[in-house]
């Protein structure tokens, strides 16, 4: 994201990155967060960005679940939404988190077996989300037709299958490769960054 911000700034576009409440370097803990807090953070960040830069229009960029959150945000200055590999639904995102937790639990079970250790009976969660937040998240989604009533949605994806999601503006920015990727996609990000920079510098 840092590279992306610098690349956009080099092209004359002001960029503001921020961490929502309870994430990254912002205050709070995840268990204290409500969905409304995050929506409010996005609105506040847009206002802050406009105040700092004096810009009249805003492109809102969201990555993965950030895109799902961005799609919930309305602001009169938003000119377009850009979604990078969006998670289409909050419910899907929670399922993804659960699968990740289960994978960690399974890995720990195997390690315990391998090393003659007893398996620890602990909650296998990467993060604790409150029940209310889980419920709120499970209700949100990105509706590809929604953009007709708000600013347009642009999807930039590293997965060709996302074309079937039905977005009017879709761009595949992955690379076809046949080598194993041991770096969680880090090798394939350059085309995405270039596609986003192209998109945000378009009038």
């Amino acid at each position: 994201m840092s590279e992306l911000a610098i690349s956009c700034a080099d092209q004359g576009v002001h960029v503001l990155r921020f961490d929502c409440f309870g994430t990254g370097e912002s205050h709070g803990l995840l268990e204290e967060v409500t969905l409304e807090d995050w929506k409010e953070d996005i609105r506040a960040a847009i206002d802050e960005g406009i105040e700092l830069s004096g810009a009249g229009q805003v492109d809102l960029l969201g990555v993965r679940f950030g895109a799902t959150l961005a799609a919930q945000s309305r602001h009169s200055k938003i000119m377009r939404y850009i979604f990078w590999d969006p998670v289409m639904s909050g419910k899907g995102y929670l399922e993804l988190l659960n699968r990740s937790n289960q994978a960690i639990e399974l890995r720990h079970k195997n390690i315990a077996k391998e090393r003659n250790l007893t398996f620890e009976k602990i909650p296998y969660e990467n993060f604790f989300l409150s029940v209310a937040l889980r419920q709120d998240i499970s209700r949100i989604f990105i509706d590809p037709n929604e953009c007709e009533s708000s600013a347009p949605y642009f999807v930039i994806s590293t997965n060709k299958a996302d074309r079937a999601l039905g977005f009017a503006h879709y761009e595949f920015a992955g690379i076809d490769y046949d080598w194993p990727d041991y770096h969680n996609g880090v090798l394939s990000q350059k085309p995405v960054l270039e596609a986003i920079v192209r998109r945000v510098t378009e009038p």
Partner: peptide
């Protein structure tokens, strides 16, 4: 360069401005 205190609350953000180092 943002600082924080255990007692204070606030969000963290990072700005990149074209052709200008963000100093805010």
């Amino acid at each position: 360069a943002v600082s924080e205190s255990p007692r204070s609350a606030g969000d963290s953000c990072m700005a990149s401005k074209p052709a200008l180092e963000a100093k805010a």
